[in-house]
Simulated assay, not measured.
Amino acid sequence: MTALGFLYPGHFAEDDYPRIEQLLGSDIRVDLVHTGIGEDAYRLEALRGTGAVDQLARSVEGLRLSGAEAVVWASTSGSFVHGWEGAHEQVRALARAVGMPASATSFGFVHAVREIGVRRVAVAATYPEDVTALFADFLRAGEVEVAAAHSAGSRSAEQVASWGEPEILALARAADTPRADAVLLPDTALHTASHIAALEKDLGKPVLTANQVTVWEALRLTDRRVNAPGLGALFSREPIVQV
C-alpha cells in the first residue's frame, strides 16, 4: 500500500481525489487534508496568502498520522504566484514541516509535461489574465514552451467548482492551438477527473489537469508508476487518436 498525502485549499473539487483513487485501481491510498484559504478570490494578494508556509505547516499533522509517504500542496495558483524560486522555498519549508518528500501542483505540471514528452503547451486557465501570465512565466522557468494561454477571467474557486463538462470543454477548446502538443488546465477547483478521456478525445492530444497532475506528482515522489488509461495520456502509454 502506498499512501499519498495532499493539502487541499478549501472545499471545491476535492471529490476528484477519491475518483482518481478509484481509477488508479491499485494499492494506492489518497489522504486529503483541507487547508484554510482566507478570501476566495483569484487576486494575487489573496492567492499568496493561501499558500503561506505557516498556514500550510499548521495542516500537516493529520498527514503524518495518516502514514503518508509524500505530500503535495494541491494548489497550482497558491504555488506559482510566488515565482519559481519562491515556490521552491515553499516546498522546501513544507518538506521540513511534514518530514517527508513534498511538492506542489505547479511543479507537477512541469514534471508531467516532461513525462509525456511534449515541447509546446497551451494553457487553459480559469484565472484572470494577470494570474494566467504568472503561470505561463512559471512554466517557461521550468523550460516548458507556452504556445498559447487563454484566461476565462473567473474571480473565485467557488465559481469554477460549479462547472461541468460543457464549460470545461469550452475552456480547453478556447486555449487550444495547432502549435500546442498538449493542453494544460491548471485549476484544482475544476472537477476534471471524470472528463479527461473526453477532453483528450475531443482535442486529439494529451490534456493535463490540476488534480490529475497532483496525484501523479505524489506518485512520482514515491517512485510509483501506475497504468490507468481512464486518467489520460499521463497515466497511459497508449497513443491518442486524432478524431
Rank of each mutant, 00 (worst) to 15 (best):
L134P: 09
V71C: 05
I168S: 13
L169A: 14
S79R: 07
G83P: 07
S154P: 11
Q55I: 09
A141D: 00
A122V: 06
S162P: 15
G86R: 12
R155I: 00
A161E: 05
R92N: 14
W73N: 15
S59M: 01
R114Q: 03
S154Y: 05
R92I: 12
G83Y: 01
L139V: 02
S77H: 10
G78Q: 09
A104W: 01
A57N: 01
A70V: 11
F107I: 02
F107W: 07
S162L: 15
L134W: 02
P128F: 00
L94E: 12
V131L: 08
R140K: 02
R155N: 02
V160G: 11
V72H: 05
V160A: 10
A97N: 06
S77G: 12
V81F: 01
E158H: 13
G78H: 08
A161C: 13
E165W: 10
A112N: 06
M100C: 06
V131P: 08
L56K: 10
R155Q: 02
E45Y: 10
Q159W: 08
E115K: 06
L56D: 11
A74H: 09
E85C: 15
S151N: 08
E115T: 06
V118M: 02
G117T: 08
A161K: 10
H82T: 12
W84N: 08
V160F: 05
G153N: 14
D130R: 05
S79Q: 10
H111C: 01
V123Y: 04
R119S: 00
T76H: 09
Y127A: 02
E158Y: 13
G142W: 05
A136F: 00
A122N: 05
L56Y: 07
G51I: 04
V131M: 07
D54R: 02
D137P: 08
L139P: 03
H82P: 15
P128I: 01
W163H: 13
H88K: 13
R120N: 03
S103G: 15
V53I: 05
L63T: 04
G99K: 04
S162I: 14
G78F: 06
A161I: 07
E115H: 03
